[in-house]
């Protein structure tokens, strides 16, 4: 089942007089439950593409459908609502809320974005803490845990509202190699358990090789066929 479809998708930034073409007409489809990587050199358009998929930014031309919704047509408020209901985010800098504990950070979207009752929240958070391996740490503040642990909490927060899609722009860029690897493994495990679609971007070849579908970006275009994969579970749509 296709979760995301892009047709002739274009994004041009306008900074005063100059126009910067960041995405120059791409077509692709991503199946649900897939584990996808956007790779490519700096400036190739990975973040731009992820922002459009995540309804944080709108395309200049072309069509982008996410979960049967033409997200190019959403206004600010509808986009916020759509993100809150369907999409989880994991950031490069973790972006946990510093005044909240681990538990409260995972709880945040359940209170401020959706309206979950207390008992359901407690159950969900306990399950996620267990799944990301942070049980017993829930009372700690973000500044009391390591980078890898922060990203685990961030993954749990992205999954808290049972989002069908999690977007992670360079989630491992601020982690050492081993930790980075374990975060990707965690995301993959969550995909296996929950069926959530994960899309992440990275520069790191070893990390990207963990993906099952790889889109190679260069200069705003999906440039060439993916690198040979050990055992690709899902085929490439390009």
């Amino acid at each position: 089942m296709v979760l995301i479809r892009a047709e002739g998708l274009v994004k041009t930034y306008r900074a005063g007089e100059v126009e910067v073409p960041a995405v120059k007409g791409v077509d692709f489809a991503i199946d649900s439950k897939s584990f996808v990587a956007f790779v490519g050199p700096s400036g190739s358009g990975k973040t731009t593409l992820l922002n459009m998929i995540g309804c944080l930014d709108r395309s200049t031309a072309g069509k982008l459908t996410v979960m049967d919704t033409d997200v190019g047509k959403l206004d600010r408020r509808a986009a916020a609502d759509f993100r809150g209901r369907h999409i989880g985010f994991v950031f490069q800098d973790f972006n946990l809320i510093p005044v909240l504990t681990v538990y409260e950070n995972i709880e945040y979207p359940l209170i401020m974005v959706q309206d979950w009752p207390e008992s359901k929240r407690r159950e969900q958070i306990a399950r996620l803490l267990e799944a990301v391996g942070m049980s017993g740490q829930e009372k700690k503040r973000p500044d009391q845990i390591s980078g890898g642990q922060k990203q685990r909490v961030a993954v749990a927060r992205a999954l808290a509202t049972n989002a069908q899609l999690v977007l992670a722009d360079e989630p491992t860029a601020n982690l050492d190699h081993d930790t980075a690897y374990r975060i990707i493994e965690l995301m993959k495990k969550m995909r296996d358990e929950l069926g959530t679609t994960f899309i992440f971007s990275t520069h790191d070849p070893k990390i990207m090789s963990e993906a099952e579908v790889i889109f190679q970006l260069e200069d705003g275009r999906i440039h060439r066929q993916p690198l040979p994969q050990p055992q690709p579970k899902v085929a490439l749509h390009a």
């Binding site: 995540g54 944080l56 600010r76 408020r77 916020a80 609502d81 759509f82 993100r83 809150g84 209901r85 999409i87 989880g88 985010f89 950031f91 800098d93 972006n95 809320i97 510093p98 945040y108 979207p109 401020m112 974005v113 927060r157 992205a158």
Partner: peptide
């Protein structure tokens, strides 16, 4: 600002 960006990205309604 970054914290506001984060909570806004994950879908916190503006009025919240």
């Amino acid at each position: 600002i970054r914290e506001i960006g984060t909570i806004s990205a994950i879908g916190t309604p503006p009025r919240r």
